[in-house]
Design a protein around this nucleic acid. Structure first.
Lengths: 207, 207, 207, 207
DNA sequence: CATGAATGAGGCTTCATTCAT
DNA sequence: GATGAATGAAGCCTCATTCAT
């Protein structure tokens, strides 16, 4: 779970020119985040959002082109933040395994902190599949690069880098789903250590 | 990806008594499967389904209580079929690793064959979260049991069994997503072998 | 104002299969006709229409794709009926001038009878300009043909046939507008006779 | 197409006192003219107008009471200008037919030059019918007067003057519609000459 | 069993207008 | 004079569901 920085732009969003506008935009996107993560995209109406944000229905459309725009906005924001947090956390790691260790920790913390927000990305497949793929491709690309470099240094076994990366992403996602999303807990220390041992040395003996 | 058998019932479904009825039910659930997997649950209307099934809108409600019923029906069916296929495939495996090897293969084949059907389960989180958790719990429970037995025989390292199981499920899901769902290919042999080596012996060397 | 027959089809309309459906469709299009002609297209809402037709809002969309569809439907219907009425009325006319005489009469009667309906076509420019042009082109094409034949027989002076046709259409429209639409009367006999004399022999003497 | 002068006032318009204000008013009414003639009154929003005029939405209401006010403003302006141009052009005509000749020419030129502006008046029926009738009544009244005088001098045949006037207006409108509005051309010389011959000597021979 | 017309609540979105700055 | 954020009513349309035939 190690990724690089990146910037994003959205033409679908009308950036406010005044302070008041900025506050309103923030209120709306916060309300959307809450509701999407609690009830899902399709069970949240614009009225729900504006009601929770305490503004009139029309106000939504001052800032967002349509319903999907907030969704995309939140996903992009999530993507950005998560990748930055991991990049920073991982900065001083000596070995690739260290980086994975710190990366997984950061990821789980992130999911814990933005529990709802993270669920949103899972729904992107059914709201905007293109966005969803872009998100994971972007994450994977940086990740693969890191793995390749580590392989060059002899720190990673002879595995297809992309395969390995999707394995690691899959692991982090399902562990996060199981403990953080479902149980609303942190990943138990014992579980975390098991995962680390697993990705380092595997699980099965032949005989 | 090794699971045990099981039976399911659905009171929300009115099983037809005549042949004609059985055909109609089949047409409807097939149409629903196609559409859900292509456009997602929320972007598919009952009218879409009945139109594709070539029946009148009202006919839908002869067999299914409501829209969610077909969805549940499909998920249960998927769950049932998948678990049975894996159980059968894995029956004669000598070692646990063998069972994993065969289990993953079977799983990927299943996803390839029921590409659409498998996407449906991912959406269950946003349609019927309870169902979604039940599905994975059921899968995981049997899986955990198997791992524990293998650990008792010394075939599996000293890892938290549940953690391991969710790692393995995560891996299979994301690899399936990446190659089968996104690329509509089979998982490349090289990737498959990498995964096997990874789950067996891990990926990282300390120094 | 002499035009030929023609058939029209509209894919935007869902023809009902039952009697009840046919009645409903009729109720809706009648209500739309009334309201469009009274308040104009843009000041009439679907709710207005369904309310007047005594059906639920959703019912509208069983029969018509959207708001513009009823409008087009009415224009096509109008076009069809008018042209047929004129064609029939004019059938046995001996001279071209006779045909014009009868054609103008029929046209004014039609506008009187379908006062509202005829106003609708004037609005088409601002609702669906393509439709509007098609309407007049269709009317004009048949008309021009008739004039050319009459010219060949020496019954019409040496004028550009298309120019003459648009003059005659313009006359009928503005006379209809002035007396039928504005005053809600029939065109006074004296006026009618003046028009006939005018189109036959003109109005100005050089010196 | 011969009309007299006249002045108009509008209480719905707040005439600006400063230069800046005059410029702003001009920008707004120019933008409105463009948009109304291109997309029609009902498909043009205040925001469209202010956006095109490069001012804030609120600014609109400094000058105009509401949306209809600009529309009326433009129609009055059009009416005023057109009638003045014709009056001037026609001033020195010797015979009534000469005046018609020059009047039609001027009218077609006007429509060509203010293509959009002229379309606006056609829409007035559906925006503000009273305004529309006033416009044509005003045009017609002066016109009728002119015809009557010419009849007194023996220059015009024995026709109902009002009927004749509406015929002539109808002709000019439909010819303008057909060639200027639809084709965006000038009225072809041949067409123009045909019209002149038609209004002078008619089109039909009895046998 | 099957049909298909009918329902009506509710969702998304637009837009004329107001008003505090 | 000008701004631009905010309003909220109202419009168009969808769709799960019911029911008479």
């Amino acid at each position: 779970m190690v990724v690089d920085n990146e910037v994003f732009v959205l033409e679908e969003i009308n950036l406010p020119k005044t302070n008041r506008g900025q506050e309103t935009l923030a209120k709306i996107s916060k309300a959307a985040e809450d509701l999407f993560s609690k009830k899902g995209y399709y069970n949240t109406s614009i009225t729900d959002i504006t009601h929770k944000a305490d503004v009139a229905p029309g106000t939504f459309y001052i800032y967002f082109k349509d319903k999907k725009s907030v969704f995309r906005f939140l996903v992009e924001e999530l993507s950005h933040t998560l990748r930055r947090e991991i990049a920073i956390a991982v900065r001083d790691c000596k070995t690739r395994f260290d980086a994975e260790y710190v990366g997984f920790r950061t990821f789980f913390n992130f999911v814990k902190k933005h529990r709802g927000l993270y669920k949103i990305i899972w729904e992107a497949q059914f709201v905007d599949d293109k966005l969803f793929r872009e998100y994971y491709s972007k994450v994977a690309d940086g990740y693969i690069e890191g793995i390749k470099q580590a392989q060059a240094k002899g720190e990673v076994g002879d595995l297809d880098p992309e395969a390995l990366v999707y394995c690691l992403i899959g692991i982090s996602n399902f562990i996060g789903l199981r403990w953080v999303i479902w149980e609303n807990k942190e990943v138990p220390e014992e579980v975390f250590e098991s995962i680390m041992r697993f990705i380092k040395a595997g699980a099965f003996k032949d005989k």
